[in-house]
């Protein structure tokens, strides 16, 4: 009885092992197929998607810099309605968005505007019915460059419906981090020093060879005559970082 029981146990274990190994082999094969397909799709679509990401990313950065780091300036931030530029300093109080915030704003811009570009992608000589949908954008601002990552879904309507989760990465030349730092320095300067007017020589100390500091006392004249509009321009990337200061 004991022997028979032992045999049964071994049989069960053996079967279990067989099942486990079989399952393992089955899933491994499946997974390998899926991964290969993803790679294939990536290879096929990613150049187009990356091109979109770069194009919209560059636009996003130009837009966001021109609007003081915002894509959509929230209601709680004081801004010039006409110029659509935020105040960074009012009566020595500072309202400068963090770099993280600027990253979010940039990804917001890309999220909302990349759809058109993605939908315009067509594969040369291929009649495959597919759809690309952005899933999420992440933006990492670094010195000299910005890293953009786009998670997107590829839907293929062929004989069978297929979905792939893919990701594209791209780098864009940008001095936004330097410009942001320079804006902080300028706001600090104006907050700490009681200057009536614009001190050109003082700004000179802050300016670096790659950047132009442009001060326009009259750009916002109609709306707010007491404000200064500051534009920090990168000679390298042509990005223009604009914000307002009010004493």
């Amino acid at each position: 009885m004991q022997k028979r029981g032992q045999i049964t146990l071994f049989v069960i274990i053996g079967i279990l092992i067989l099942v486990v190994v079989g399952l393992f082999l089955f899933f491994r094969e499946n997974s390998r197929n899926q991964s290969d397909m993803n790679s294939l799709m990536l290879e096929k679509f990613n150049p187009y998607v990356k091109s979109c990401l770069k194009e919209i990313g560059e636009k996003a950065l130009l837009y966001v810099t021109r609007h003081g780091g915002y894509y959509k300036i929230p209601n709680e931030v004081l801004k010039s309605a006409l110029l659509d530029i935020p105040y960074y300093s009012v009566s020595k109080n500072k309202y400068i968005p963090s770099v993280n915030r600027i990253e979010d704003e940039t990804s917001g811009y890309i999220n909302e505007n990349i759809k058109g570009c993605l939908s315009s992608i067509s594969l040369a000589g291929n009649s495959t019915d597919f759809e690309l949908l952005a899933e999420g954008v992440s933006v990492e601002i670094d010195y000299d460059k910005v890293k953009l990552a786009l998670g997107y879904n590829l839907f293929i309507n062929g004989s069978s419906y297929q979905k792939f989760n893919l990701e594209a990465e791209e780098f864009v030349d940008s001095d936004i981090k330097d410009l942001h730092k320079l804006s902080e320095d300028l706001v600090d300067y104006y907050s700490k020093n009681n200057i009536e007017g614009v001190c050109i020589t003082c700004l000179e100390d802050l300016s670096k060879s790659n950047f132009i500091i442009e001060v326009s006392p009259s750009l916002n004249l109609l709306e707010d005559p007491d404000s200064l509009t500051l534009s920090l321009i990168s000679k390298r990337t042509k990005e223009e970082f604009r914000f307002l200061i009010k004493k």
Binding site: I200, T201, E204, K208, I212, E214, S216, S218, L219, L221
Partner: peptide
């Protein structure tokens, strides 16, 4: 001043062009 500046109409800049004061109207 301790430097050289150029005022071209309403644009005052230092000689490197790194600082520009633009007093032109919008």
């Amino acid at each position: 001043l301790n430097n050289q500046y150029v005022l071209d109409e309403f644009l005052l800049s230092n000689k490197e062009g790194g600082v520009i004061l633009d007093v032109s109207y919008p």
